[in-house]
Amino acid sequence: MSVVRLEGVGKSFLRRDGEQLEVLRNINLEVSERSIVALVGASGCGKSTLLNIIAGLAEPDQGAVYLNDMRSSAFKDWRSMTYMFQEDRLFPWRTTAQNVAFGLEAAGVARGERRERVMKVLELVGLDTFADSFPHELSGGMRSRAALARSLVTEPTILLMDEPFSKLDPSIRASMHDEVLRIAALKQMAVIFVTHDVEEAVVLANKIVVLHPRPGRVRETREVALPYPRNPLSPEVAEEVRLLRLSL
């Protein structure tokens, strides 16, 4: 069974000057259970649009999207999918625990259960001692963990991420990578993420989709069979990074 399948997806936007801008053309993609897929490409190749289409935030003009082998128009279980943005998007007026609880409030989970699940997920990302802190009291890495916790607390089977760690320091980014891999394996999630960082793609993904811009289309799909954890300094990873750079 595939968690996400795209068949011939195309998308155009109407530009301000009235011209049609083709953003995506004939995208085919298959994401199987528990796999980690990276969408890589230069800016303007429609990576984020593609992620928005999968998330149901945008409609494709051509082609079809299947979630759990079901047409996305018939798909009901949207709350099994969460979206982590490039910015942490934490509400400044909510504490860490309240921010994490946001998705549970949307689903109408009762207060007591909310508390329990929030504390569990805060422990998972190592933020349990900062449950009552406000976002401005957290460091960049901690804010990113809080955003990750918010994406995890609803127990998704699909996690979408749009360059979620691009604004973090390299060392913190590396620890967030470990965190995502650990939790994805633990929770048996499928992860689809967008990045322009080739090394990030190789360290995390077991499948890398290379997109070419204007209009965005799939240039190549690479399987990465290296065992986890992957050290970015090891020769095998460096070789993969080199090959991936060549196809960009």
Binding site: A55, L57, R79, T82, F102, G103, A106, T154
Partner: peptide, 24 residues
């Protein structure tokens, strides 16, 4: 707008968005 979009990804209802994002 980013907060409203975040609420959309969680499929939060319109009244809840008004209460939890607009009001604060």
């Amino acid at each position: 707008r980013e907060f409203v979009e975040l609420a959309q990804t969680f499929r939060m209802s319109k009244p809840k968005v008004l209460w939890k994002i607009y009001l604060p």
